[in-house]
Design a protein around this nucleic acid. Structure first.
Length: 612
DNA sequence: AAAAAAC
């Protein structure tokens, strides 16, 4: 089995370790209930609010899906179900029938070619570019030589689909002809030394890079989206396409499988969401939305919050053309979700567990799904997620289009690409390196005993701050610590029940609280406007985690700062991880009374300071 | 080792 990553090694006694316990088997939600009292002024029935409309987080990551199928069903549109009204179903779209486009068989595309680019032998660490990430050594164990690292080799993977046989459903013609996808696997044998690298590097996929300047003057309509969708995007705050959107929207509409990498906050959600809606619409042009119709598109995300957020972006787009979406994730009663499915929905957005659960209960039928999107695709290929995701994808319609998006997309996704994608197009945005980033990175080397005090000072500020902790217990403890210090804070982690999770995140979004302490449940995809400081109370273990966590700030061009606390012993691991992340950050030894803390707690750097 | 994801 693709035992993806996860080194056997692991970290030594973590840098910090209150370890409030091996309390892994904690009871959900219990302990935190207590510290919610602060802020009596919230004249808002916080409990009931559920994600209201105020946060149309708009762009964020997006995933698009699309359908190239045509699935016949009857004629009108009489859906009475109104998830979150806003404007009624409107179907003025001319039913263009675009389908019929030559689906994957264009031999002319020079791009893609999934193959692993020749990895560079570094020693010279050139610069970044997502690709060729210089070694990525998992556990970040202290400078251990690469050799004792558990290896993970693509070539060791079970021969799944490697040939073709396993992927019977897809039209074999194109595939047989195009050799591209085989490039994923047909890599030359490696030497033992190279083999070592593979498990840590996950080479980058060769991609077609779009230049930011290519987008100048291009509108969403030019990319093939209909007027209603373009209008809906404008209402979400997306007036014109970001590069990743300009690159992937036409590709998704063409029906091709797509792999896309765009850094955090670059607009991936709309990049897949908008064309997905357009595709579903085209596929059913002129047909009625029947009661009980089965979903035509599926968007999978790794966390409930992300699924919810994606829906907040996709739903208005879908509604603008009369299509319905529904969320399918755990932690909340099934009834409402099942009820929506019974009435019939066009697009479902959710997390693997509940989706599989409903499928097994026969309350969800994925057989009509023509487009499936995996957001944070590389994460969805990790241990624990991969198999459920595979089972879900296998339930979708034969030949369904697959779209894989992530800010850190690498060969780790080959586990899914091999089985499910056919000659995928690979896109990324050119020049997304640190030089063009709007995020400033700093590392504070501290004494463990000073940690709590330094954290208190760092988060005692005006702007919104997101603090990451390695464990649920520590996240909870920190939130209480901040509260006790007079700094209103809430937490977000898996020990909380979904209502609290949703409410606490909402509190940060709305600004009622300016400090949120979270585990990595919030590392990926979550978009909250104006987080200008990310504090890593515990340094992450993987460079990808570093990139995703820090990506909670500096979104859509805004500036932000990331401060990571480490103890002296961890300097080396941190240095190595930053190099893998291709990030440059000064290390500063800091004590509680140092001015630098106030400086860091102050306003985030200006664009000019960042480039200086 | 931890986190996430169903009940």
């Amino acid at each position: 089995m693709p035992k993806n990553k996860k080194p056997a090694g692991g970290r030594p006694a973590a840098n910090f370790d209150p370890r409030y316990g091996q309390r892994s088997a904690a009871k959900p939600g219990s302990r935190s209930a207590g510290h919610r009292g602060h802020r009596p002024d919230e004249a808002e029935p916080a409990g009931k609010r559920r994600w209201s409309a105020q946060e149309k987080a708009g762009r964020d990551e997006a995933r698009g899906i699309r359908t190239h199928s045509r699935d016949a069903r009857g004629g009108r549109f009489d859906d009475a179900r109104p998830p979150r009204p806003e404007r009624g179903p409107r179907e003025d779209r001319p039913a263009r029938s675009f389908e019929g486009r030559p689906r994957r068989d264009e031999g002319d595309r020079p791009r893609r070619s999934f193959e692993g680019r020749p990895r560079r032998d570094e020693g010279d660490r050139p610069r970044r570019s997502f690709e060729d990430r210089p070694r990525r050594e998992f556990g970040d164990r202290p400078a251990r030589s690469f050799e004792d690292r558990p290896r993970r080799s693509f070539d060791d993977r079970p021969a799944r689909g490697r040939g073709d046989a396993a992927r019977g459903s897809r039209d074999g013609g194109a595939r047989a002809a195009g050799g591209n996808r085989s490039d994923w696997n047909a890599r030359p044998e490696r030497t033992a030394a190279q083999e070592q690298r593979v498990d840590v590097v996950h080479e980058r996929l060769q991609a077609e890079a779009i230049q930011a300047t290519d987008v100048d003057g291009v509108g969403f309509g030019d990319l093939g989206l209909g007027d209603n969708i373009v209008r809906a995007l404008a209402e979400l705050g997306a007036a014109s396409p970001f590069p990743i959107q300009a690159a992937t929207i036409p590709e998704v509409l063409s029906g091709r499988d797509v792999l896309a990498r765009g850094r955090t906050g670059s607009g991936k959600t709309i990049a897949f969401g908008a064309p997905l809606v357009e595709s579903v619409l085209r596929a059913q042009a002129g047909q009625r939305r029947e009661f009980g119709r089965r979903p035509k598109a599926l968007i999978l995300a790794p966390t409930r919050e992300l699924a919810l957020q994606i829906d907040r972006t996709v739903q208005p787009i879908a509604r603008s053309v009369g299509l319905f979406t529904t969320q399918i994730y755990g932690g909340v009663p099934q009834a409402r979700q099942v009820g929506a499915l019974k009435k019939g929905v066009d697009i479902i957005i959710g997390t693997p567990g509940r989706i599989e659960d409903l499928v097994e209960q026969r309350k969800l039928d994925l057989s009509q799904v023509q487009v499936a999107v995996l957001d944070e695709a590389d994460h969805m290929c990790e241990l624990g997620f991969l198999e459920p995701v595979q089972r879900i994808l296998r339930r979708t319609a034969d030949g369904s289009q697959k779209l894989l998006f992530s800010a850190t997309l690498d060969r780790e996704v080959s586990a899914l690409v091999d089985e499910f994608l056919v000659e995928p197009a690979v896109h990324e945005v050119a020049g997304e390196d640190q030089a063009s980033s709007t995020i400033e990175h700093r590392v504070l080397v501290i004494d463990h005993r000073d940690k709590a005090e330094i954290l208190d000072r760092l988060v005692d500020r005006d702007g919104k701050t997101l603090v990451f902790a390695r464990t649920r217990a520590y996240a909870e403890m920190l939130a209480e610590q901040f509260d006790d210090a007079g700094i209103p804070a809430v937490s977000l982690h898996g020990d909380l029940n979904q209502a609290k999770r949703t409410r606490n995140l909402q509190r940060l979004t709305s600004g009622r609280v300016r400090v949120l302490v979270a585990t990595d449940v919030a590392a990926r995809g979550i978009h909250v406007d104006d987080i200008d400081l990310v504090v890593q109370a515990d340094a992450p273990d993987e460079y990808k985690t570093y990139l995703h966590r820090s990506g909670r700030t500096g979104r859509a061009g805004a500036t932000g700062r990331v401060v990571t606390l480490i103890t002296r012993q961890r300097r080396r691991r941190m240095t190595e991880m930053l190099s893998r992340a291709e990030i440059t950050a000064p290390f500063e030894e800091v004590s509680p009374g140092d001015d630098v803390i106030d400086e860091l707690a102050g306003s985030s750097p200006t664009a000019a300071e960042l480039t200086a």
